[in-house]
Design a protein around this nucleic acid. Structure first.
Lengths: 110, 110
DNA sequence: GAGATACTTAGGCAAATGCCTAAGTATCTC
DNA sequence: GAGATACTTAGGCATTTGCCTAAGTATCTC
């Protein structure tokens, strides 16, 4: 697997979990201290920290400890690889639609 | 979890697996018959079919059976929700950069 | 209609994942 | 420096995931 695809893999794995996405959504609004980050979840601190570690290893989140407090934040641009990958998975029909400026609406009944 | 987030969840879960991403990459080039789809993978047909089912349930792939042959294809626009979600996870700094037309390069040593 | 094809279903199993409790360790506060 | 804080590490456990083999079922081909 090429180097950039490893990154896509790590990022997608990280984002595949709802808890981790919630963390990302929270951090998109700005940095947060670990305990504050954990507060809204019905989950123990160690569990949430594990999620945070996954996000960090995927390069999506970074964190720094000052004293006994660890502050986490989103790593800017870390999700760009996903946009890139997604862009490559467009069907010929979609490329065609792009050229015509048409927006295809999906038909999915749920 | 709001309705659209369920979709994000399903799509991200589906794309979190390398085999399933490879299938998507293949289908981005055009529809394919199940057995042809399975051929490049060192995996039994039933295993690959399971992946295909996950992709279908996530709405990323659709398939149709004619006779004894099932043809799978990407469902156009199914990945749009991801673009949408990704767009919402931009940091204030990134929004700022957008306005200035600056492309942030990530510093990651590996 | 007998055999080959192309899936499909069912069941099982090992490894990965997500979560928890319990017990640290390092700082901070008084 | 004693107790409170804020993580951190370690270990365990149930569920989910990804994969397999074996045994169907529905076409197609001759």
């Amino acid at each position: 697997m090429p180097k950039y695809l490893d990154e896509v893999d790590a990022v997608l794995r990280a984002l595949a979990d709802p808890t981790r996405r919630a963390v990302v959504e929270r951090l998109a609004k700005g940095p947060a201290v670990v305990s504050d980050l954990a507060e809204p979840f019905s989950m123990t601190l160690p569990s949430l920290l594990q999620h945070l570690r996954v996000l960090e290893e995927a390069g999506v989140v970074m964190s720094e400890k000052q004293g006994r407090v660890r502050t986490a934040s989103l790593r800017p641009g870390s999700l760009d690889v996903l946009h890139l990958w997604l862009g490559q998975q467009r069907t010929p029909a979609e490329h065609q639609a792009d050229r015509l400026g048409i927006h295809l609406t999906r038909t999915k009944d749920t």
